[in-house]
Design a protein around this nucleic acid. Structure first.
Length: 569
RNA sequence: UGCCCGGUGGUGUAAUGGUAGCACAACUGGUUUUGGUCCAGUUUGUCUUGGUUCGAAUCCAGGCCGGGCAGCCA
């Protein structure tokens, strides 16, 4: 059990908050959710779920200059896609702007906040350094009446942005810089996606967040490690005039009448880092803005929308989040674990089809011209309920170019002159000849088939080492296939300050090819996980159209043959 | 050289004073109409130095190493 579940278990056992567990997932709508958020979502919603509690989805929208409704919408879609349900309606920090403002006036009245006229530069110099204490602002001693008047005029829009701020009066000598009279309100002329131009000043995160949590009756406020040092300020806000929150929580939490007041408590865990992946929203936005990818939902992006389009399943992501655990240790998780969880789920659910990515023609000389046989093919060997389908077999077929070698090494179990292989669900064939063009490039294979081996069976019990996938030349269809590989070629992209992200991109992160697919593949929906046998897992792209199919490669199959080859080479 | 938080195989994570376990990765072998899946196995670890204790990954102290913090961002 991880330390958060241990803590909550104890809290429940101690009867804290009447045994109630209420968490929240509070993204800022300034970008799309990514796999790192999935971890937080699984912790926030998962903890509530496990203890029979609730979890709110709350947009932390206190900085309108960065936030957009497009993001608000995508966040909800992604959380739903992962399979989580939030309590009641989506919440917004902006729902509580009135309360934040009222509490600020109360703090002023209590002598615990003051309006400061220092410029940002002056404030920085007064703040001190990591090793030296700060200096008190000359405005710190303003009278309560003057502070109240000035703050109200800030709200009325009498001062330009940056002229004045409201600061908490705490301790300029604190070793924790966040306690050195932090700014809690600033003027910001920016139209808000929900409140429009009602406000020209907005609360800061450190001030607003504990209020938001208290307003919603949150018991456990779980967040990432970088907020650990902010916790004393979180506590300070809640503890100044605690009586204010009791009534507010009753009115805004949406909880049943009589629910006792809960004072939220913040606990921090380490965020997810993944090899070959960037998790910073700022850098992901940069990729989008510079057109280094096609958008937030580019299948190479670690965003949930990109992964969804690529063919990731919610189950795979949730299993992954479960396996990585929850600690305070700053770790770097191998992306191979994510891919393992993906393959594990896909192996169970993906429907098998045959598609030839790099076609090489095969002519079966003793197979009647014009004959078509409908072969039975199993849709999913891991799931009998998935049934079977028909695949047309004809005299001319395509096989994978890499499945033939003219002069193969001993352990090559595929096609070569004189060698026999099985065509999956088809027949056993033996290569009898090779056709080449003037340049010596192989253009076609001549083969013979054994009519006694229909379906790929060997009635005489003989062993065949290789089984190849294939597509009928006359029935196969062309399809665009997008072969995705990792977006970055370095294990820790973005780790070097000042280095251009573009320099770390994998130039082979996308290869577009035209493949030959079996006819049944023309009709599959983007909702269906697919396996192209012996090749990998694929997903129809949402942009796929009748007559113009497009497939995205989700992930390759494990390939111990390729691995053996790579080792020698 | 201030404050806060961390250090368990290559990676991630269990063990909360009592046999260092699991997963991924890697490597062997077996099965197989996907060189997939599955099965069996192998390799590899408690940062360090003291202390407490019958017994320490766990508790205490020092050291070393890593991360975070000086936005009117979240």
């Amino acid at each position: 059990m991880d330390f958060i579940r241990a803590m909550v278990t104890k809290d429940v056992a101690d009867g804290l908050n009447g045994g109630r567990v209420h968490t929240r997932f509070p993204p800022e709508p300034n970008g799309y959710l990514h796999i790192g958020h999935a971890k937080a979502i699984c912790i926030d919603f998962g903890t509530a779920e496990q203890f029979g509690g609730r979890c709110n989805l709350r947009m932390d929208d206190t900085n309108p200059s960065k936030e957009e409704v497009e993001y608000v919408d995508s966040i909800q879609e992604d959380v739903k896609w992962l399979g989580f349900n939030w309590f009641a309606d989506v919440r917004y920090a902006s729902d509580y702007f009135d309360a934040c403002y009222a509490y600020a006036e109360a703090l002023i009245l209590a002598g615990r906040a003051f309006v400061c006229d220092l410029t940002p530069e002056q404030m920085r110099s007064h703040r001190g350094t990591l090793t030296e204490p700060g200096q008190e602002s000359p405005f710190r001693t303003r009278s309560i009446a003057e502070n109240l008047d000035l703050f109200r005029r800030m709200r009325a829009g009498e001062f330009p942005d940056g002229a004045r701020v409201l600061r908490a009066k705490i301790d300029m000598t604190s070793p924790n810089i966040h306690l050195r009279d932090p700014v809690i309100y600033r003027n910001l002329r920016s139209s808000h996606h929900r409140t429009g131009d009602t406000w020209c000043l907005y609360p800061m995160y450190d001030y607003a967040h504990p209020i938001e949590d208290a307003m919603e009756g949150i018991t456990h406020s779980l967040c990432t490690l970088e907020f650990e040092i902010h916790r004393p300020l979180y506590d300070w806000v809640l503890d100044q005039l605690p009586e204010f929150f009791v009534e507010w929580q009753r009115k805004t939490s949406g909880l049943p009448a009589g629910t006792p007041y809960a004072r939220p408590r913040q606990t921090e865990f380490a965020r997810l880092n993944l090899t070959y992946t960037i998790m910073s929203k700022r850098k992901l936005l940069e990729l989008v803005k510079r057109n280094l990818v096609t958008g937030w939902n580019d299948p190479r992006m670690p965003t949930l929308s990109g992964m969804r389009r690529r063919g990731y399943t919610p189950a795979a992501i949730r299993t992954f989040c479960d396996k990585i655990g929850v600690t305070k240790y700053n770790s770097l998780t191998d992306v191979a674990l994510l891919e393992h969880c993906l393959r594990d789920d896909l192996n169970r659910v993906a429907l098998r089809y045959m598609a030839v990515l790099d076609p090489l023609k095969v002519v079966i000389e003793n197979y009647p011209e014009g004959q078509v046989e409908e072969m039975d093919a199993v849709n999913n060997p891991e799931d009998a309920a998935a049934g079977s389908r028909k695949v047309p077999f004809t005299r001319e077929l395509y096989v994978e170019r890499a499945d033939f070698m003219e002069d193969p090494p001993k352990k090559f179990f595929r096609l070569a002159p004189g060698r026999e292989v099985r065509l999956r669900w088809g027949y056993l064939i033996t290569c009898t000849g090779v056709e080449k063009d003037a340049a010596g490039q192989v253009t076609a294979l001549r083969c013979t088939y054994d009519p006694a081996t229909r379906g790929g069976n060997t009635p005489d019990g003989r062993k065949v080492q290789g089984t190849l996938h294939w597509v009928s030349a006359s029935h196969g269809l062309d399809a665009e296939v997008r072969l995705y590989d990792r977006l970055f070629k370095v294990e820790q992209p973005g780790a070097v300050d000042g280095l251009d992200l573009a320099a770390e991109l994998n130039p082979e992160s996308l290869t577009v090819i035209t493949a030959k697919i079996e006819p049944a593949l023309a009709a599959v929906s983007p909702a269906t996980p697919l396996q192209f046998e012996r090749v990998g897992y694929f997903r129809a792209d949402p942009a796929t159209q009748p007559g113009r199919p497009v497939f995205n490669r989700t992930v390759t199959l494990r390939d111990s043959w390729a691995k053996a080859g790579a080792k020698k080479g």
